[in-house]
Amino acid sequence: MLQFTLRRFIRGILTLWVVVTLVFFGLRLSGDPVFLMLGDEASPEAVTALREQLGLEEPLPMQYVRYFQMVGQGDFGNSLRERRPVTEIVAERLPATAELASAAIMISIVLGIPMGIFAALRRNTAVDRGLMAIAFVGQSAPGFFVGIMLILIFSMQLQLLPSSGRGTWQHLLMPAIALSTYGIASLARLTRSAMLEVLSKDYVRTARAKGLKESIVQMRHVLRNAAIPVITVLGLQIGLAISGAIVVETVFAWPGMGRLIIGAVTNRDYPVIQMAVLLIAVSVVIVNFIVDILYGVLDPRIRYQS
């Protein structure tokens, strides 16, 4: 188990290293952010001064080494646009995204998994078909379009919920639902298929044959075994919720990381982009690592195989 954990850990670190390196070199090789900030008509003195201030005068490998040192110290430099520490800006935005993403994941779990279980236990009935049809539509709908439809219906027509901003649970409701649509749908479909697969196993038949109550068979034998693929996908869902938040935040003017990133991409504010990308990469890698470990704990075959 220790070896398994260690391997997964090293893989996560390597992934992060590749991401940081790609973003770092890509941004610096592509163009000159100084001209972007000062405009094409800036005086050469101003350009040189700013280049020195940003450390862009040093050769690339030096900048790279210095960057890693800075990242290690938690210093991501100043935003080119706002001229204050990136960490400060991100710290202001992070709670909003965390709130939105965790609400969406909660909704996905609370609705998606029971939907899947329910459909599997009533296989091939109208209930099953209806639920799966809903799940299918949910899986094909882009989050931003779901968001716009929600605004159209609940804000514009019924005037029940605010269409933008953050603060109360009413503000959170629509963005969280828009963000969780895909999660609900895919968890429901996956839970259903995982349940069906386990339900057809010999040990479930044996459990029934020895006279166990159906509820015990379902809880102890079916659900526990069906949980393994569901947990893996749950890990993926967290990554998707974080990245989906970027789009949904734009729709609902939610003041989180998503809008920060889109703004930074448009303005080529690379310190912000680097920190945002790294932060998302770190959170996704950590989630994947936890899922891998959990997966190994739940299913011993996996840790022995690798």
Partner: peptide, 24 residues
């Protein structure tokens, strides 16, 4: 397989955004 792992480990839209930030 390492590159596959890296790409699978990250939401693709993040990489797409970084690429657009870099190249416009």
């Amino acid at each position: 397989m390492f590159l596959v792992d890296v790409q699978l480990a990250l939401p693709f839209i993040i990489m797409a955004l970084a690429a657009i930030a870099i190249f416009g």
